[in-house]
């Protein structure tokens, strides 16, 4: 599975800092080797907390290598905005999927899986599996 184009990952948070930090954290925890393309889309374009569909669309285009794009979102408007964009059909690359996963843990699992050559379904499943890692 090494030759296939990697799945891209987009991290959508209400906060630019959170999205960028989680992207860096995931890259750090994913270890060495070639990492799948990841982009942060946090906050509004003017820097405030919130969600920007334009930043999300730009991030998705940036990481799209033709193998699909997995989007992880934190909560509220981040989730709703991605869903509304997906419903429209032409605002995100083909084969873009909102992944139902915890934001931080899911981002790490998604990046590890995508970097190992997993396809979009495998990336989504790995990220979603992070819900099952209980902490108590």
């Amino acid at each position: 599975m090494t030759e296939r184009a990697p799945v891209g990952i987009v991290l959508v948070s209400h906060s630019a800092e959170v999205a960028e930090s989680v992207a860096r954290l995931a890259a750090g925890l994913a270890g060495g080797g070639q990492l799948a393309p990841t982009a942060a889309a946090g906050g509004r374009r003017d820097g405030g907390f919130g969600t920007s569909s334009e930043l999300i669309a730009e991030a998705a285009r940036r990481v799209d290598r033709g193998a699909g794009v997995a989007v992880l979102a934190d909560l509220g408007s981040a989730v709703l905005t991605v869903q509304a964009m997906l419903a429209e059909g032409d605002e995100l690359p083909r084969d873009t999927r909102l992944v139902d996963a915890p934001f931080v843990e899911g981002a790490v699992a998604a990046l590890v899986t995508a970097s190992a050559g997993g396809d979009l379904a495998a990336v989504a499943a790995a990220a979603g599996d992070a819900y099952t890692f209980r902490k108590t």
Partner: peptide
């Protein structure tokens, strides 16, 4: 609707945007 989704910045954007769209 599309304009609301891209400019509101909160949950009202996708919700009202979806209403109009």
């Amino acid at each position: 609707g599309r304009t609301l989704i891209s400019t509101v910045g909160g949950a009202a954007g996708p919700l009202y945007g979806t209403l109009l769209r």
